[in-house]
Write a protein that binds this DNA or RNA. Sequence first.
DNA 1: ATCTTTGCAAACTTTTTGCACCAAT
DNA 2: ATTGGTGCAAAAAGTTTGCAAAGAT
Lengths: 147, 147
Amino acid sequence: VVPERQDRIIAAIRESGGRVTTARRALVSALVRADGHVTAEDLAETVQKDHPDVHLSTVYRSLDALEHIGVVDHVHLGHGRAVYHLADERHEHLVCEVCGRVQEVPDAIFEQLAAELLESYGFTIRPKHFAVLGSCRGCATRTPSQN
Amino acid sequence: VVPERQDRIIAAIRESGGRVTTARRALVSALVRADGHVTAEDLAETVQKDHPDVHLSTVYRSLDALEHIGVVDHVHLGHGRAVYHLADERHEHLVCEVCGRVQEVPDAIFEQLAAELLESYGFTIRPKHFAVLGSCRGCATRTPSQN
DNA sequence: ATCTTTGCAAACTTTTTGCACCAAT
DNA sequence: ATTGGTGCAAAAAGTTTGCAAAGAT
């Protein structure tokens, strides 16, 4: 178990004036146990194993609340659902358009790009918000399937 | 006018076995005249000025066809609509999360990152597919509004 | 007691699809 | 004459919202 992180998040909810409910406790637990790249629906399913009447809309609303207090971030990996993860996971996503696999890479890889965009364009990137699409090692020669 | 590009695209449609219809001609014209960053709905509106009964679904289907033959690409700039542009525009998008402004930067900026990801992870990026989010010069100090 | 959060159902937004008709080759 | 494209309406997919009831402080 990873109790510290959960407790820290629960505390953050309380500090922000939010209330700690069963649904939120379960959601935080699901987020901490998830390996990242989970959709709201994934999280809802996990939560619903123990608390079957927690509704998907509650998950969305709670994720929104957690995002507002900086605990959670979400990323659009392509078409369809967004994926959510804890904000303290400092990594980016590489999404293979051929096989669909998602790989995490350390944030540091983007530092050079960030510096260049800042110097040349005055643009400060917040890279976590979007994934980098392409093809992974095994799929490099094949054509990316349309998405 | 920019007739060469239109003609090249029309030819490409024909070469791919596709048919050159009024709707497609108008769509290609709208794409060429657009400054990039146009949604399917933007394009539909432009097309409908001259051809009011071209349906949004036709625009989607034609964009899809053009994307299949490599003429068009689309990008998700955040929540909501995707934006489409001609594939021969070699640039990326920087989207400011504060003021919403979209800035184009040359592809070359991403070469170093591409090389690093390829060497370290065997990952070949297709960067055009997603935008880089962050804050532009004027907005750098302000907090990005939640999106 | 108060004020937030919840469950539900329904709305909403963007994109896709089924189908019968039309049009390009 | 074929076969692919089109308009329309309706479905899908993902997310948001209004409301009254339930729950946390």
